[in-house]
């Protein structure tokens, strides 16, 4: 139980006091902070509305004249809310948080090329190499083709992520342990792939910018 610093009512952890509506500096998981069920498919517009609505109720600007304990609770509650909104709004960071929430943090080590991407990555590096050596219109066009290709594969990976999210939401928390494990493995693989492709896209972009500037 936690105590509201405004009306002193004891209650279950929440962002807003059930008694007086004042902010509570509770420690909550990010779904609970946004007052959302633990589901991975989220309606972006509804989440933005919820964020704005909660912000209106707990932001420090609303409590400029309140006692120190209330201002402190307001600041902590808002810090949690903003973190929740920013983390859950973007599907990729939402997926990462899902792993973290279940004690399966994605390693920072994404250097290894996912097997299915190997051929594509190899070809892209070749084309970029050629572009660096000689900035001919042909090489430029070839690099641009690789850029389009990388964007397409990234879009596919994001669609795959959405399917993984749907699988989680369809199964619920109490599904078969083996299938649950498989979903985690799949989620990790997709996120690694996306991380790798994002870096690759950035590399291509940089090379093209350098070529353009020269």
């Amino acid at each position: 139980m936690i105590t509201c610093p405004s009306c002193m009512r004891a209650q279950a952890p929440a962002l807003v006091c059930a008694g007086c509506g004042a902010p509570l500096g509770a420690n909550l998981d990010l779904f609970a902070a946004m007052n959302l069920p633990r589901r991975l498919t989220i309606d972006a517009a509804a989440m933005e509305r919820a964020y704005h609505d909660l912000s209106r109720r707990i932001h420090p600007d609303r409590f400029a004249a309140a006692p120190a304990a209330v201002r402190d609770a307001s600041m902590r509650a808002t810090a949690l809310l903003t973190r929740a909104y920013r983390s859950l709004r973007d599907p990729i960071s939402r997926g990462r948080y899902w792993l973290e929430l279940h004690g399966r943090k994605l390693g920072e080590n994404n250097q290894q090329v996912p097997a299915e991407l190997a051929a594509m990555v190899f070809e892209t590096q070749e084309r970029l190499e050629e572009l660096r050596d000689s900035r001919t219109p042909e090489n430029l066009a070839a690099a641009r083709t690789r850029q389009t290709e990388a964007a397409r594969v990234l879009a596919d990976a994001k669609a795959e992520l959405a399917r993984n999210f749907a699988a989680w939401d369809g199964a619920g928390e109490d599904a078969d342990e083996e299938r649950r494990k498989a979903r985690f493995t799949n989620l990790k693989a997709i996120l690694s792939k996306i991380a790798y492709l994002t870096t690759l896209e950035r590399d291509i972009f940089r090379e093209l910018e350098t070529a353009r500037a020269a």
């Binding site: 139980m1 936690i2 105590t3 509770a26 420690n27 998981d29 304990a69 929430l101």
Partner: peptide, 25 residues
């Protein structure tokens, strides 16, 4: 007084929150 009572205030806040949840965050 604020300093002397801060640990107490934190304990009140934390009372019902499971250790497991805290570790994850």
């Amino acid at each position: 007084l604020n300093e002397a009572s801060t640990p107490f205030a934190h304990r009140i806040m934390d009372r019902a929150i499971g250790e497991a949840l805290k570790r994850k965050s």
